[in-house]
Design a protein around this nucleic acid. Structure first.
Lengths: 137, 137
DNA sequence: ATGAGTGCAAAGACTTTGCACTATA
DNA sequence: TATAGTGCAAAGTCTTTGCACTCAT
């Protein structure tokens, strides 16, 4: 079970309320990137608006990050502190696996430099079929 | 001025109608990635639903592709035939520049291979400030 | 002529907002 | 206790759908 990162909230002057704790726990317990709806369903005692507001806040504080899907949909997941990563998204079972490759980040930075572009952030998502779905067919 | 690619529509058995021509022209004339709303505003005589349906169709036929923005928004642009490319998206002026880097694609493929992932497609977007916005500040 | 395509308006899905109430700091 | 945060319901957005009509083939 993961630790719930309450620090960033308190440190930034936000109040640590029961609904926020509940959202943080649900996020910490999530086994894969989730939609607002899934999160909200898991938290029936918390208003949907609050879930939206909380996720928006956590996203601003970099506690959660967005996972853009191929169909334009969006999921969220806990940010690994400071470690930027990318995703392997299975279009068959929907599983999302993280990976990290310094070479990839480097190539991206090189492209930005070449274009005289001041890089703030980037996203790289790979879409296809995961190993288990391949094995299953 | 770019040529309007009507071929893919006809070849696939879709009818080449006046509204579709108009959408294709608007796309060909676009100087930067557009939203459905912008496109629809440019085509006041065409029903919004038709614009949605047409873009959906063109996206399936790979005539347009999605440009995912950092804030989760989506824009579209003409696909360069067969040439997968990536974007430099300026968060200040909103300009989108394409780039292409075989090294980037290669690193991505390597990661997929390492993870035994069957790669269908990928997206890589770089967010930051373009050269002119840097110069302007 | 005939069925794909269209426009309109209604319905849906998703997200935000207003406001009175609650509870943290 | 002062005010950030919450819940609810209403209001927005954005997108899709139903249906009768039109038009490309």
């Amino acid at each position: 079970m993961s630790t719930i990162p309450t620090g960033p909230l308190e440190e930034t002057g936000y109040r640590l309320t029961a609904p926020r704790r509940a959202v943080l726990e649900a996020i910490a317990g999530a086994t894969r990137p989730f939609t607002i709806e899934e999160l909200s369903d898991r938290l029936p005692n918390i208003g949907r608006a609050t879930v939206f507001r909380t996720i928006k806040l956590l996203h601003e504080l970099d506690i959660v990050c967005r996972v853009p899907l191929e169909d334009g949909g969006i999921r969220y997941e806990r940010s690994r502190s400071g470690h930027h990563h990318h995703h392997l998204i299975c279009s068959e079972c929907g599983s999302v696996t993280e990976f990290n490759d310094p070479a990839l980040d480097e190539v991206i930075e090189q492209n930005a430099t070449t274009a005289s572009f001041e890089l703030d952030g980037h996203s790289a998502e790979l879409y296809g079929r995961c190993a288990s779905c391949q094995a299953a067919s």
